[in-house]
Design a protein around this nucleic acid. Structure first.
Length: 326
DNA sequence: AAGTTTTGCAACCGCTTATAG
DNA sequence: GCTATAAGCGGTTGCAAAACT
């Protein structure tokens, strides 16, 4: 790209945004949409570059942002997704409605990594640190590159085999379908169709490889009686496939979450009048619901089971596809 | 209470990817 | 196919607040 054409035209403000700037940007976008970001600052009367405006909107001003402390479930999900996707924060964020890639990245770097290490799990490889070191410390030798690369890192670029692509598709497809019916979290369901192919030796019917909760979830068709509660059920399973803890607090079941459509200009306009008079009505409502759950979890150490489950899950993936697959 | 260190988050920077002409 | 521009992404930095000494 060779520099930012929007940045050098004139002396532009940098650093923290003032409330006045925020208001200008919000007002402009809610009235006209962002259109071409490079024209936004001029039209909105801001001494900022378009890139800065875009970032401010995406990471802070968007009305559908959840904000607030990450819940234990969210952290668990981030770990699960990171094990599959690696540092592809935008991909991870796509599975956490109301969270931005930047927010997730910060959470990972400042909090989750630390917790994983405290539990003896290497955040790069998602394997036990002892195992990583015993294996020759490839991660360190390779300058931080995971000794056991993630699924995504090996499939998304260059020479990916059809089997890898298929497996990732399966994984992500199950996320998508689960979440579209659930409307909230998208979870890795470690399931692979029995007809996945002869190249993959193990099906989801092996109870040793797939603890009851995850495997049964995978094969179980959504019953007719399930409504939004289905999400809660699935989440309980997915967040607890080691021993069935982490039930959803009843007051914070996914069916209680308000769903806010994304990226819809009409919706932008719809919320704008309300938004402009009271900051973040929708997101704050969600946040208010989320906060009690988040509570002390951020600083607490309730990490054991979920952290280990991630490692355990990664082991399962390796078992399923073989070491060479990764 | 004051100084220092640590932590968490917002924002920037530079690179890559997508798209239009 | 090439080039310019815009958008998207991930790594990194800077700073304010919190924690610690």
């Amino acid at each position: 790209m060779g520099g930012h054409s929007c940045c050098y035209k004139q002396k532009l403000r940098k650093g923290l945004w003032s409330p006045e700037e925020d208001e200008k940007l919000v007002k402009h976008i809610t009235e006209y949409g962002h259109g071409c970001w490079s024209t936004v600052p001029k039209q909105a009367g801001l001494q900022r570059c378009g890139k800065s405006c875009r970032l401010r909107w995406i990471n802070y001003l968007r009305p559908d942002l959840k904000r607030g402390t990450f819940s234990q479930q969210e952290e668990d999900l981030i770990i699960e997704l990171h094990a599959v996707l690696g540092n592809r924060w935008s991909k991870i964020a796509a599975h956490l409605p109301g969270r931005t890639d930047n927010e997730i990245k910060n959470q990972w770097n400042s909090c989750i990594k630390k917790k994983l290490r405290q539990r003896g799990i290497d955040p790069n490889t998602h394997k036990a640190i002892a195992e990583v070191e015993a294996g020759g410390g490839n991660a360190a030798k390779n300058g931080g590159i995971p000794a056991t690369p993630t699924l995504e890192s090996t499939t998304s670029k260059g020479s990916s085999s059809p089997a890898k692509d298929f497996a990732l598709d399966q994984l992500l497809a199950t996320h998508e379908s689960a979440s579209s019916s659930m409307g909230y979290f998208q979870l890795p369901q470690l399931s692979f169709a029995p007809d996945l192919g002869s190249s993959l030796p193990i099906t989801d019917t092996n109870p040793e490889l797939f603890p009851a909760s995850s495997s049964s979830m995978a094969t179980m068709p959504k019953p007719s009686w399930v409504g939004e509660d289905y999400c809660s059920i699935v989440l309980q399973s997915a967040c607890s496939f080691d021993n069935g803890v982490f039930p959803w607090p009843p007051e914070l079941g996914p069916d209680k979450e308000e769903q806010i459509p994304l990226g819809n200009k009409n919706e932008d306009i719809k919320w704008s009048s309300e938004y402009l008079h009271s900051a973040f009505p929708a997101s704050s409502a969600v946040q208010a619901q989320s906060q009690p759950l988040h509570g002390d979890s951020k600083r607490g150490s309730q990490f054991g089971i979920s952290g280990f489950s991630t490692w355990h899950q990664n082991q399962q993936l390796q078992d399923i596809f073989g070491k060479d697959f990764f």
